[in-house]
Write a protein that binds this DNA or RNA. Structure first.
Lengths: 318, 318
DNA sequence: TGAAACATGAACAAAGGTTGGACAAGCCTC
DNA sequence: GAGGCTTGTCCAACCTTTGTTCATGTTTCA
């Protein structure tokens, strides 16, 4: 009990996993900025403490928010936390792009009203009704998609309290889930892995894509937000995927996203198609063209792409 | 200590059998890390005590969990026990299912296996089966909860690839959603707002709580992760809530979380109860007591709290 | 006494780490 | 827009860690 209770130490690999940094970068940060100074083993290998990991995680958060490592490296943990808190709330916004579609249906209006009045039951009922009454194409393209865009826009302009935004996104998430049964895919269905690249926190666009894919008869492996390229590649491998679809929304740090895309393409077998959509995809048009990825700028485009190469494939060799 | 009570001694062979290590490895560990120092016979052969065996078994557990021998060898037995306990949380709960249905353990095992093999269909089927076969109490307390804990623990240690973790959490999220219809609450149901405070990114604990609340007959407003105190308070006001429940997991930056809790309590009408749960809640026990919040350290505790003050309330004035 | 079990030091291979240097892309300054 | 700084990535050569194997000698015990 009264022992000094030295907490266990961690190898580079573990720290890399837990922070999302590569071992190389970990060492580079240490060498250049003395970001942490892990204990060394007798043979010289690094042993990181829990405190080291916490500090690194803070730095990751802060740099992901756009600050440069050189500027934040000398700061103390307390200051980092403060920065992270500030950046987080400022960053808590969806995107606003795409010229606003003037044709908005009753469902859309009702849903927006329900979200404004913090009435999640009404919102959920409205969305479910839309999903049942409309063909799922239309529900997604003309209700869910625009609703998300509108909420994002208002939120960003401060016309929508965060609490309402959270309630609305949680509800939309729930209805999307309810609309989809990923397991209903036919036996010979092709498989698609869907997520967002690292540093992209909002996964609702990806969820829309997943719903479209499932309703187009594909088998879907949905990964959610913020996965680094190598993990996406590994997921594609493990799932024997025929395609990988990414949703890119957040326009900050395009350089990093570009790199991730390149790396992903290079780690993916050539036979696996790479699809990219979302409001932020346009900013990467050049990279996408260069690496031979398909840019799909609407759910309809995604659907038609999926339909044309649907389950036609010969049965996969097991 | 010389004469008294010498416990029986064991040869290498016996120790090898009981620890699962080879005699060679046993000697290597002793030579390289002084892991134990068994008494020697007159002729120089090793004689291990029961204490030696216990220590070795601890080391086997901990290394099997993914830590390297060099890092854990210098730790004391107390530390090792703690690590082993942490690493094996789910296995403990696996074993702890003696109390009832052995099927519970199988669900958990199958689910973990499916997650490891990146088989989201199997994972989803398993979880749905658990949800259908078991009373929802048991499914949440003994399958979903432990599964999340185990995945979290492995992930932290780097024993679980991020891609698998994402797939698993996305799937769990989907099944939880499927289990719950928030709109099914009775007319006179009380209302609870559920989310996580600012800087807490993981909302799965909150989702578990929401499912429990819905199945206990409460009307639920689910807000998801990372809301600042003033927004939580505003949400409670708008929803005419009778309670606010928060899930706290991430132990970093306890000071900030403490402040948020204080602010939230002060902005909430006195008639609204504040419930706090999750692995990170214990760290805030003092604050919670001080501000008069209820700390609930299990889903069962949450359920019983909710049940006792269930829908008894007089109809709320509109 | 002789077979089985054990001890010891040395060696090995595979996995994983370390280092320094190089490099490209983005950014800033003049 | 040339040159310099910042920052993430990559590489090649080398070192550590760790489980395993081998050769050789010693102890134990039926």
């Amino acid at each position: 009990m009264s022992e000094t209770m030295q907490s266990p130490l961690h190898s580079v690999r573990v720290v890399a996993r837990r922070t999302g940094l590569t071992p190389d970068l970990l060492r580079a940060w240490e060498k250049r900025y003395r970001v942490v100074q892990p204990v060394r083993s007798a043979g010289g290998q690094r042993n990181y403490s829990d405190a080291d990991i916490e500090r690194l995680q803070l730095l990751v958060k802060v740099t992901a928010a756009g600050r440069s490592i050189g500027q934040v490296a000398p700061l103390g943990n307390a200051e980092l936390r403060e920065l992270a808190a500030g950046d987080q709330s400022a960053h808590d916004s969806l995107d606003a792009t795409e010229s606003g579609n003037p044709a908005v249906g009753r469902y859309l209006n009702d849903a927006l009203g329900a979200a404004e009045h913090f009435d999640s039951n009404l919102l959920e009922s409205t969305l479910r009704a839309a999903a049942l009454q409309l063909p799922s194409d239309q529900a997604l393209d003309q209700v869910f998609g625009p609703l998300l865009l509108e909420i994002g826009a208002r939120w960003e302009q401060g016309r929508f309290p965060p609490a309402n935004g959270h309630l609305a996104t949680a509800t939309i998430r729930r209805v999307l889930t309810w609309m989809t049964d990923f397991r209903a895919a036919p036996e010979n269905a092709r498989t698609i892995v869907i997520g967002t690249p690292a540093m992209q926190l909002h996964d609702l666009g990806a969820m829309l894509a997943a719903t479209v894919a499932a309703s187009s008869g594909w088998r879907v492996a949905f990964l959610g937000a913020s996965l680094p390229a190598d993990e996406l590649a590994r997921a594609a491998r493990m799932a024997h995927a025929d395609a990988v679809a990414l949703s890119i929304i957040d326009p900050s740090d395009p350089a990093h996203v570009g790199r991730e895309l390149g790396q992903l393409r290079s780690e993916l077998p050539r036979s696996v198609a790479l699809l990219v959509g979302g409001a932020g995809a346009a900013a990467h048009a050049d990279v996408l063209e260069q690496i031979g990825a398909h840019r799909l700028d609407s759910l309809a485009a995604l659907r038609s792409w999926l339909m044309t190469r649907g389950q036609g494939g010969e049965p996969r060799p097991e």
